[in-house]
Design a protein around this nucleic acid. Sequence first.
DNA 1: GTGTGTGAAGGGTTTCACAGCA
DNA 2: TGCTGTGAAACCCTTCACACAC
Lengths: 206, 206
Amino acid sequence: MKKISESTIRRLSKYYRSLEQLISRGVETVSSDTLAEMDGITSAQVRKDLSFFGTFGVRGLGYDTRDLKRQIGEILGLNRTWRVGIVGAGNIGKALVSYAEFKKQGFQVCLVMDSDPEKIGTRIGELTVQDTRDLEKLIKKEKIEIAIIAVPADAAQRVANELIDAGIKAILNFAPISIKAPHGIRVKNENTAIEIEALSYFLTNS
Amino acid sequence: MKKISESTIRRLSKYYRSLEQLISRGVETVSSDTLAEMDGITSAQVRKDLSFFGTFGVRGLGYDTRDLKRQIGEILGLNRTWRVGIVGAGNIGKALVSYAEFKKQGFQVCLVMDSDPEKIGTRIGELTVQDTRDLEKLIKKEKIEIAIIAVPADAAQRVANELIDAGIKAILNFAPISIKAPHGIRVKNENTAIEIEALSYFLTNS
DNA sequence: GTGTGTGAAGGGTTTCACAGCA
DNA sequence: TGCTGTGAAACCCTTCACACAC
């Protein structure tokens, strides 16, 4: 499979959302121009992104919204559900358990763990917080496919290692450090502080 | 001022964190190699990024950790505090009020608003949830410089417009739509669903 | 006529490789 | 000797522009 850039994948996610919006408004056909406008990019970019995966449009007409949404869903692996486990039941972990956007796209949070005895056993939504000590066993039992790290920086790499040992291949990391993982394991770092610091830079230098 | 790429800014944030870590460990000097290793990139990249802003190292020796941290802090505008306001007191909004990484870097959350009568008046940490109806007045009174949007998708653009009218120049958006803003206003979109979908793509196509 | 799909051009970012300095 | 700072090369991504299909 040809190597597709990270940016293309991110944009596909955006197109997917824009298409959802259009469909809910009853729109049946859309041009690359409109899609581009909704996501703040150029129409050539939209067409190029899609061209990596096939031809989905009709010349002179545009794209069928439902059809394109399904096809992008297929590419991104969204036409199914994924079992997600969260390590860390602090503020971020808790917020993610009930994150509507996850549920809507088929990411089912089935497991929350923490190492704090005060938190273990408490309930978050429909889940009971489990003990991190049983990480490997729980990950396997719950058949978790994607893990989210929401623990402090100094515990993050250790948790990542345990997750990888337990067979996890995809990690979303909220701890403010870069996590190291062997080839074949995909780690995405989500660090809100970095985003706000980019805003700080912008305000400072303009 | 020369145009610096978004990626360079993001990496500076990472270097800043790595330097904090090194300093707390008592390390006084660091090479671009070590810094690169900590952040999973190349040493040439580190040196190039820094070279856009000046020369901070000593040939043959490396960088003084404290000095470099202060200089990057200066570039990013972190050697001061910023007043932050949040619109939306749902799960994400609540989690952000007490987000330790914000506080640590000088981003003071001083205002939380919501439009839900059930939420208005309740307390989150040390703040009382205010009514979004008074947005403009509150933003000005609290001298908010950076606003965070943590409301549902269908309200996000409206809230953004109100924030911009109130004089806000920097917005961090958590709603799953692209927000449109005039030139001179900087918007950063933070969408966790897009990150997890990239993981889904990776798991599906490999 | 209209809007897609795409090779080619353009622009920007990363990597290379080495001169230069402590 | 060791590591920075930096032009030049390589690479990748975006934009252009137009043939082509409806």
